[in-house]
Each structure stands twice: as C-alpha cells, then as structure tokens.
C-alpha cells in the first residue's frame, strides 16, 4: 500500500483530535449531565497508559500475541476504573470546589508517582517497548491501522453517549446533576450513581490513555500534563457541555485547529515547536474559552433541549 500521500504529522494530529474527542465525550457524561467537574482527566488517562505498559512490558508472557496485548489493555482499563471508583468515593459528596481540588490533586499524585516509581515506570527517562499488536509493513501503515482502531473505539463511545441521552440512565444523570436532594427523595441512589459514573468514565479514559501510549510508543512524565485535561475541558465547554455533539465540535475547533492547522500548515519557525507552541496553544485555548463563555455561556451548541428530544423520541 502506498501511503506517501499521508503526512505523518497530519495523521498524528488527527489521532490526537479523535482521542481528545473521546475524552471530552466521557467528560460530557460527568460534567454535562451529572455536573461533576472532573479536573483529573489526565490522571485516569495516565493510569490506563502506565498500567497497560507495566503489565505489557514487565511481565514475562508465556502466551502468544495478541493475548498479552489485549489482557494488558483490559488491565489498564480496569485499573483506571478502580482509580475512578476510589476518587469518586472521595469526592462524590463534596461541593464543587472540593471536587475540583480533589480531582486536580489526584492527577498531580499520579504525575508524581510516575516520576518517582522508576522501577516500574522508567521515571523521567520514560517507558518504552510499547509496540503495535500487529505489523502490516511500514510504520505509517501500522499507525494508520491503529488510528482506525482508535476511531472505532471513540465511535463506540460516541454511540454510547448518544444512547445514554435517550435512556432512563441519562435522565437519572441529568436529575442527579440538576437537583440531587429531589432525585434522592424519588428513591434514586445518587451517591452510588455518581460513583459508578466516575468509575465508568475513568475506565474509558484509561483505555484511551493506553491506546494513545501505543501510538506514541514511549510514556514520559511530560506527556501527562494538565494540557491533556485542558484540551478535553476547553473543547467540551466551547462546543457545549450539555450536548453530545458539543464534545466533537468543540474539540475539532480547538485541538483540531491548533494541532493540525496551526502546527502542520502554518509556516512557523522550527525553533518554536518545543518552547513557544505549547504556551501559545494554552493561550489560544484560554482566549477562545473566555470569548465563547461571554458570548454563549452554554457553548456554541447551547444548552440541553430535552423538550425537543422527548418530542422526537416519544412521538405519538
């Protein structure tokens, strides 16, 4: 297969966009529906990546591929989900400030552990040896196939979230976020609901982290900074926290615009790439966020429209 037409940079940029869309969709369930402000996205994402990496590279597997790979992926997902359960249990009944500090603190703890637990994670040097579970020829071909797999995973997440909006579970999440005491008085176990939502969301974030780890081959502490969380949050808020398409649109407009258009196609000086661009990115994101929140407080797509949804789903 001739893949000369495919720019490696473009492929990588698109991979990032789709991956962040996945994170933003999961965050949408937490923040947009249940109103839990999870600022620790990167923490769960990193736990998934490292748990996958540790099991995959440190264990002397006696069974053949693809089992070690798949088992490690599952392991990363489950460990991230368990971390979500623990963090969820700590923050589920806190006020918004507590949730913010708690989740942010959790991500920081993960970053510190990754740096200090050198034996497991390789510390600052990083953890290598993460390779594709297949080899179909050129690097680019392998990357394209892996991108395809990510696309399917994020597509599945999108479909799940879309269905949740049209299911009693989604209604429950909205009720919990909207008026928790009232939901409780109707017999809804709100604490448990938030806990499981956190666990499921975190597991999904962990899976995306592991998938991303395989794409980049090398896990380093610099890779798990707050910028990952910010990309998901800014994209989601910009597009509209309460809308399914908000995550997609917002992330394309922010991460897509910056990581693909600006970085690949604008003639920026080479020397900018390591120092200036990451800072520029945060600045542009911040500015975009402020402008949108001033002009359209609910994001570009606006607030949830349950009346429309109910009319279309329960047409008599």
């Amino acid at each position: 297969m001739n893949l000369d037409w495919l720019d490696a940079f473009l492929l990588f940029g698109t991979f990032q966009v789709v991956m962040v869309i996945g994170l933003a969709l999961l965050l949408h369930l937490q923040l947009g529906l249940a109103r839990i402000a999870n600022f620790g996205v990167v923490g769960f994402w990193a736990i998934g990546a490292y748990a996958f990496g540790v099991l995959f590279t440190k264990v002397d597997w006696s069974i053949g591929e693809p089992w070690p790979f798949l088992i490690s992926m599952l392991f990363g997902t489950v460990v991230a989900g368990l971390a979500g359960l623990l963090v969820g249990w700590l923050i589920a009944d806190l006020e918004i400030e507590g949730v913010l500090v708690g989740t942010l603190g959790f991500a920081t703890v993960v970053a510190i552990l990754v740096t200090t637990e050198r034996g497991l994670t390789g510390g600052a040097l990083g953890m290598g040896g993460l390779s594709f579970p297949f080899d179909i020829g050129k690097t680019k071909a392998n990357e394209l196939l892996w991108f395809g797999i990510l696309f399917v995973v994020v597509g599945a997440i999108f479909y799940y979230v879309w269905r949740v909006h049209r299911s009693p579970y989604g209604r429950l999440l909205i009720a919990v976020g909207d008026n928790e005491p009232l939901a409780r008085s109707l017999g809804k176990p709100t604490f448990q609901t938030k806990l499981w939502l956190f666990a499921i969301g975190s597991a999904g974030m962990g899976l995306l982290g592991a998938i991303n780890g395989v794409m980049v081959h090398l896990l380093i502490p610099e890779g798990i900074g707050i910028n990952v969380t910010l990309a998901a949050i800014v994209g989601l808020v910009l597009g509209g926290t309460a809308r399914v398409w908000g995550a997609v649109l917002g992330v394309i407009l922010t991460v897509g615009f910056f990581d693909i258009v600006v970085q690949s196609y604008l003639p920026l000086p080479r020397s900018w790439y390591t120092q200036a661009i990451p800072v520029l990115r945060e600045m542009v994101f911040g500015a975009a966020l402020i402008i949108v929140l001033l002009v359209r407080p609910f994001g570009i797509l606006g607030d949830m429209r349950r009346d429309k949804l109910i009319r279309s789903t329960h047409r008599d």
Binding site: P168, R171, L172, L186, K188
Partner: peptide, 20 residues
C-alpha cells in the same frame, strides 16, 4: 428539575432501578 420536561419528570419517578 430545571433541565427535565414534565414527561421526563414522570418517567424518572416511574423508572425502577433496573431501567436505570
């Protein structure tokens, strides 16, 4: 529930845990 319609409210009330 500000974000839920009247129908939503009723279905929420009616939904047993197994649906949710």
């Amino acid at each position: 529930f500000e974000k839920l319609t009247i129908w939503d409210s009723l279905l929420l009330s009616l939904a047993a845990a197994k649906y949710e």
